[in-house]
Structures are given as structure tokens and as C-alpha cells.
Design a protein around this nucleic acid. Structure first.
Lengths: 162, 162
DNA sequence: GGCCAGTCAAACGAAACTGTTTGAGTTAAT
DNA sequence: ATTAACTCAAACAGTTTCGTTTGACTGGCC
């Protein structure tokens, strides 16, 4: 029973993930644990969601710690974006760890879904870490709901809310 | 405002971490957010704890996915432990990514706190990943009685506890 | 001594998350 | 058409975590 505590996973989730990795089907695990395959599916899904959250969290703090951070506006071309990465890196005394063609393809690979004709369709947040790694992140758009007029972010009210 | 969602951090925690990284004191942040320095301290502590949890979580799933996993018993010598790592690696067709002296020192560095006179003081869980990385983990504490029984039989009605 | 920056514990209500059940749905193979 | 393996949504009660407040505390530094 590997660990359990001090992680974002529960004991149950670790249990299921472990057995799953060993090749058991959800039904087999359900029988062993005395529950239903539906339940095992749900627990496994929650577990994998938590692992992804953990991964994203580390990406986030890496971005927070990055000495170079800026937002590339929608409409910017890939060429300009590449230029900007190098320029901002210079300003902060950071050496970007990729030569130009490589940086170009790295950016393209991760942004092609949000670009067309070599131009960004949405604003993109760019970070360059202290060791020159370049990371990009696309802000999610506001999720849609039946009722309009959402205010997902704080509106500068000092109302202590949680 | 980098991201927020789909991580293990709350908006507040990201906010504090971000401002902290930019060099503000807790009091300055408290004034800006309209709360107390004590509160900022608490939020920051929770945030850092969550980041550590995220890191540990990824370590855990790496261990779960590892093709080689075994528990070295208390009392085993470091030399035997090193031997065992190579032997078990061979069994699973995994090439350990360290030559002997290096593996020895890597293990020693991480286990010296739980060893004396070149022998383990507690059982240690060892994992070798598919690419040959070796990881160790020391179980926290033994809560209660423990029976061996490794047979994967349905043994009892374990009340679903969480 | 008085500041400054920060930590820690206990308490609180509010919000989020947990595993579980139930029931329906999908996809592929036989 | 049946089965196996799995997904998904909604609901539930129980647990955990959240931010916050209050108050006391530790070290440095002047």
C-alpha cells in the first residue's frame, strides 16, 4: 500500500489506481472491494482528475515563479510572438533554451489549436522560467450557462468572500 | 491572473502566492486584500502545503506506474539493498539508470535519516520506473496490528471507510 | 524597550469534496 | 441479441477544507 497521506488522493483512490495499474478490470476491483463497477469507475475518474490537477498545479507555480511573464494579444503572428519571447527574455537576463526554429515549432505545436493562418485567435499567456523553458497557457473562456451575465472574477469589492 | 481553476489551489491562494513572489510583504498584501497579515500567513501556508501535496501526488503515481516495486526490510544493509535493486530490475527487464557507486550514494542520501551503520532502521519502499529512475519512500507509522496475508482473496467485510 | 515580518493555534460558518447508490447509456466483440 | 467493460449524471450524507478572526508568540533590528 504505497503511501496515501500528504497527497491529493484518498486511500480509496490510491487503492483503485494501484489495482487498475496491475491490470484488473473495474468489475474485478468492485468485487474485491465489495461495491459496484459503477462506483469503481467514479472513484477512478476522481483519482485521475486529481492527478491532473496536481500536474496543473505544478505547472502553475512554475509559471508564477517564472521571471518572464507576459500576455500575447489575440491576432499576433507567430513570428512576432517568437520575437517577443526572445526580447522579453533579454530584458530579464534569461536565455531562452531554444534556438529560433525549435522555439517556433514548440510554440506552434501547443498553440495550433488556438491559431489560424499563423496568428493567435485568443490571448495567450507566456512564461519563460529561470532555466529558459518556455510555457504557454490559454485562458479558458467563460463557461456558458442558461442564465447570462456572469461575473466569474472578483469585481474589486473588498467583501471577504470564500 | 495566471490560471486558477483545475488546480489544487484556490483563487485566494494563487493571489497570495503571486504577490508574494513579486516581493510584497504579508502586510502589504493584507492591506491590498483588505485583511490581516495573520490571515495572509495562513493562506500562504495552506497554499504551500497544497503545492507539496501536488508534488507528492505525482511522485506517488510515478511509483504506482513503476514496473519494479518492492519493500526492503528493516535491518537490510545498503550493499544488499543496492544488489536487490539491480536484481529486481533485471527480473523486470528494466535497466537501472545508475552505475553502482552512484546508486549507492543516491540511496544513502535519501535514506541516511532512516539508517544507522549502513543498515536500514525501518522498512523502505523502493520503486524503479520504466526509464530506470530509482525512488524510495519510507512509510510513516504503523497504526495497528498487521497480519501478513498477501493472498488477494476477499478476506473480510471491510466496512467502506474513508 | 519598541517596531517589523512572520508564525501558530483554536474556533467558526460556508463551501467543496468524498464514496456510494441507482439507473441509464455507449462501444466493441461474440 | 447478449455480454463485457466502461462511462455518466443526479442525488445523498458525511467529512474535509476554505478563509477569516482573534490573540499570543518568536526573532531581528534599531
Amino acid at each position: 500500500m504505497v503511501t496515501s497521506e500528504h497527497t491529493v488522493l484518498t486511500d480509496r483512490q490510491v487503492e483503485v489506481l494501484e489495482l487498475r495499474e496491475q491490470g484488473y478490470t473495474q468489475r474485478e476491483i468492485a468485487d474485491r472491494l465489495g461495491t459496484t463497477d459503477s462506483n469503481v469507475s467514479a472513484v477512478e475518474r476522481a483519482a485521475r482528475a486529481n492527478v491532473e490537477k496536481a500536474q496543473r498545479t505544478l505547472d502553475l507555480v512554475a509559471a508564477i515563479r517564472a521571471p518572464v511573464r507576459f500576455t500575447a494579444p489575440a491576432g499576433e503572428s507567430f513570428d512576432d510572438l517568437v520575437d517577443e519571447v526572445y526580447a522579453r527574455g533579454d530584458d530579464a537576463d534569461v536565455t531562452v533554451a531554444y534556438p529560433r526554429p525549435e522555439l517556433y515549432s514548440v510554440l506552434y505545436e501547443e498553440l495550433s489549436a488556438h491559431a489560424s493562418q499563423n496568428r493567435l485567435e485568443t490571448p495567450v499567456e507566456v512564461a519563460v522560467s529561470a532555466d529558459g523553458d518556455v510555457t504557454v497557457h490559454v485562458e479558458e473562456s467563460a463557461p456558458e450557462s442558461e442564465t447570462d451575465g456572469e461575473t466569474p472574477e472578483n469585481s474589486s469589492g473588498d467583501t471577504a468572500s470564500q
